[in-house]
Amino acid sequence: MIEVESLYFKYPLANDYVLKDINLKIGLGEVVGIMGGNGSGKTTLIKHFNGLLKPTKGFVRIFGKDTREESVAYFSKKVGLVFQNPGHQIFSDTVWNEIAFALKNFGFEEEIINKRVKWALEFFNLTQYKDMSPLLLSGGEKKRLCLASVLAWNPDFIILDEPTVGQDFLQKEKLIEIIKMLITQNKTVIVVSHDVEFIWLLQPRLILISNGTIVKDGDCKSIFKDNSILEKCGITKPQLVELYDELYPLIEQPPVDVIEAYSMILKLLRGLK
């Protein structure tokens, strides 16, 4: 469980707070989307979830423990953060070692490390590259490798910062599949993204941030219907919600994916035939 209680944060030397009065509780088995304009404080917020940043005022507790009381490594074991740019973490000589890096840091035994790395390589279709330098992988593969290197230590919370940037359709499909599978294992996935279509497909609990404060925290269906809040946070509507806006009351709920939209429209066109 991640608990955030009246969190205020500012960088040393700065005058203004980047985060103001953030209150949050995130439990296990949730999908959470965090959205907001550039510079709204999203990345600063998620860096509090494993203790990389400590609150200037207020508290962040991970499974009941204040992030000021333990090391980043201690919290990272439970909360895995995958940053946007793979270039900021890839350094090993081989793909295998890149995945094993964190497992070694966390002090797992050799046997378990081997087992976990093997699993991660297979799960992410990277086995054929295991002895290759990770720098030679394509952009999409590098992103997959970063996710693999975090999932390998089996954290309870997985935080993804802009996972869809530069990703094509097939890679996005795969990502959604992985997120859904993680949820069935009672993990929590937190996705920070600008990609409204991707967020809509996840149907998450949605947290909107603007200017360092939480503007709205709730069900993504109701938030995406609320024009004034979206306007305030600089977020556009997913096409399927637009469709609902245009056709309401002919359809009663925004469809969650194209298949549902298709069956709704089909019903409309057929029902009246």
Binding site: K47, A73, S76, K77, L81, F83, Q89, N105, V150, W153
Partner: peptide
């Protein structure tokens, strides 16, 4: 700073 944050998040002390 980003790189240090990434590696600390992977347990580097």
């Amino acid at each position: 700073i980003q790189i240090i944050d990434s590696q600390r998040s992977r347990g580097l002390e």
